[in-house]
Write a protein that binds this DNA or RNA. Structure first.
Lengths: 139, 139, 139, 139
DNA sequence: GTGGTCTAGACCACG
DNA sequence: GTGGTCTAGACCACC
């Protein structure tokens, strides 16, 4: 459960936290019932104000990813993983879609776009060679 | 020279205008020396506040894409097309890059990401009446 | 559009604001497209902190009752009235239900409960004699 | 003396305990002098923190419903039943009152409200598989 | 210890 | 002018 935020990103800090927790739950590193770090702890670790963390948690609770257990903290719900996987897929897909739409709208040819994508895809991220999961398809 | 803005988009209206003019110049539909519409005309046509259009034009001027010609209006500069082509390439590439980075960071495998991209790329440019769909089936 | 909050109520101020706006929209006094008071105005009028009002507005936006129009303020959505009528009916019904359930669970007889209800109903609110509407329902 | 608490209810657990004991005493199932379970036993049975039970008992003692008998535990007081009946009546009445007040404030007509109440009252007491419990007595 | 609410005031982007 | 985010710190209820 290692999170990190970029304070200077255009995307709000609380939203970065929401996203990262969502991804962590989607990936299974936070199974249902497990407690996520407390507001105060996380605030210290991320060096942001507790209120900012609290806002993120409220949003996560609103999305039924996490539920507050009185006196204990916030726990991942039973449906959390499923919700998160769905949200993750949707948001990634949506972002890819709009990116490509804009690329095409900008007047670049389909081939130009494809080449750019392939270049970046080759360079992207650490290899993570053997983790194809979640997608059972052929390929 | 037909622009249109979506007032409810997360991207600011003035930026939409800047982008669209940039893309038009990059594509060659606005050659050097050609006049772009006046602030007031465009404001009426797009149904936005004149200040918003003015802000866009100001930004275009700052980028040396257009220059104001006294008594005439704003004209595309000599270097405009080149600047715009470069900007277009950079911004598209940057957006693709960050999109892929997030996709990978979300825990999806490279193959998953590639498949999503391919699907969307195949669909892109095809008008897509609305949101079409592909994928809803679990697979 | 006259709201008032009770700072000492157990129900949070921001929630009181949410409820009252919801009821106002349900009642039709805020038709779709109309702007609700600005955060700052309302904060002054209710003598609460602007952040508190902002929190209420965010919740209303989340519920699709209101949408933020850039530079203008928050406007009631097209579906707002319907959403509000539904929420109102649900929340009132739910509260009545749990109240009666507790009354019965407390060991009072059905007749005792009915008598209490009738007493209070007779005394409740201003008469508002002829406004049966809003109940389109089948039943 | 079978209690049960809902940890996810908005009403605090200790208050649920207080209420249920109060209702039981009001109904006569816990006559004066009878002992209520010990803090530890009840905590185990309800699977809540002993502090929570202790807080409830403390409140019951403050209200003169039970009193601690050295070496024995907590016993219902002589005046307990009367106090509980009065408290029960007051709290039920108060809750009904505020429920109806809100219903009217929401803009629903008196007739709408009455109809909702009648519907729910008809349904109430009908077991509703779950929360029925302990009270089915003669009546 | 936990989360939730509120006040206070700063700063920003947008129109 | 509008709303949105963030920091700061207080207070509360609950466990």
């Amino acid at each position: 459960m290692l999170l990190q935020v970029e304070p200077d990103s255009p995307v709000p800090i609380y939203e970065q936290i929401v996203d990262q927790v969502t991804y962590a739950v989607a990936a299974g590193s936070l199974p249902p019932g497990s407690l996520i770090p407390s507001v105060r702890d996380l605030a210290v670790k991320l060096m942001v104000h507790p209120n900012t963390v609290a806002k993120a948690f409220q949003e996560l609770e609103r999305r039924a990813i996490v539920t507050s257990v009185r006196g204990k903290g916030m726990a991942v719900t039973e449906e959390g993983p499923e919700i998160c996987r769905e949200r993750r897929l949707n948001s990634v897909r949506e972002r890819i879609r709009s990116t490509l739409r804009e690329a095409v709208a900008s007047g670049l040819s389909r081939n130009d776009v494809r080449r750019l994508v392939d270049d970046e895809l080759a360079a992207a991220g650490t290899p993570t060679p053997f983790t194809d999961g979640h997608f059972k398809g052929k390929r």
